[in-house]
Computed example of a mutant assay.
Amino acid sequence: MTDLLLNHRAEGPASAPPLLLGPSLGTSSALWDAVAPELSVTHRVVRWDLPGHGGSAAELIRPGATVGDLAALVLRLADALGLERFGYAGVSLGGAVGLHLAVHHPDRVSSLAVLCSSAHFNGAKPWRERAALVRAKGLTELAENADSRWFTPGFTVPRLVQDLREADPEAYAACCDALAAFDLRDRLAEIAAPTLLIAGREDPATPPPHLREIADAVPGAALVELPGASHLAVAQCPEAVLTALRAHFDGAAPRGTAVRREVLGDAHVDRAQARQTPFTARFQDFISRYAWGEIWTDPTLGRRERSMITLTALVAHGHYDELAMHVRAARRNGLTPEEIGAVLLQTAVYCGVPAANRAFATAQRVLAEEDQQEN
Rank of each mutant, 00 (worst) to 15 (best):
W32Q: 00
D147A: 15
G22M: 10
Q162C: 07
E239C: 06
I295S: 12
V259I: 11
A252F: 06
Q273T: 13
V224D: 11
V46T: 02
P227I: 05
R303K: 12
R365M: 09
P337I: 11
T277P: 14
H120S: 15
A272N: 13
A348D: 00
A356V: 04
F249V: 14
T195N: 10
L196N: 02
H231S: 09
Q162R: 14
L314Y: 06
L367D: 01
G228F: 07
A235L: 06
P18K: 03
D3E: 12
D163M: 08
E11A: 13
V269T: 10
L188Y: 12
R149W: 14
A221F: 02
V366C: 07
L20S: 01
H319D: 04
F86C: 07
G68P: 04
P208Y: 01
P153R: 01
H319I: 05
A221C: 07
A342S: 13
V366K: 06
V263E: 11
Q276F: 02
F360I: 08
E213G: 12
S29M: 08
G200M: 07
R255V: 08
F151N: 01
F283I: 13
V97P: 01
A240W: 05
W150C: 08
V241D: 03
A171E: 05
Q372W: 06
V91E: 00
M325Q: 12
H317C: 11
E339L: 04
A192S: 15
R365E: 12
L242H: 09
D177A: 12
H210D: 14
L60D: 00
E213K: 06
E338R: 04
R303W: 09
V315D: 06
A36Y: 00
A178C: 10
N145C: 09
L6P: 00
E84A: 15
N7A: 14
A244P: 12
V366P: 00
L264S: 04
H248F: 08
Q372V: 13
A96C: 14
E294L: 15
V241P: 00
E170V: 08
D371H: 14
A217D: 10
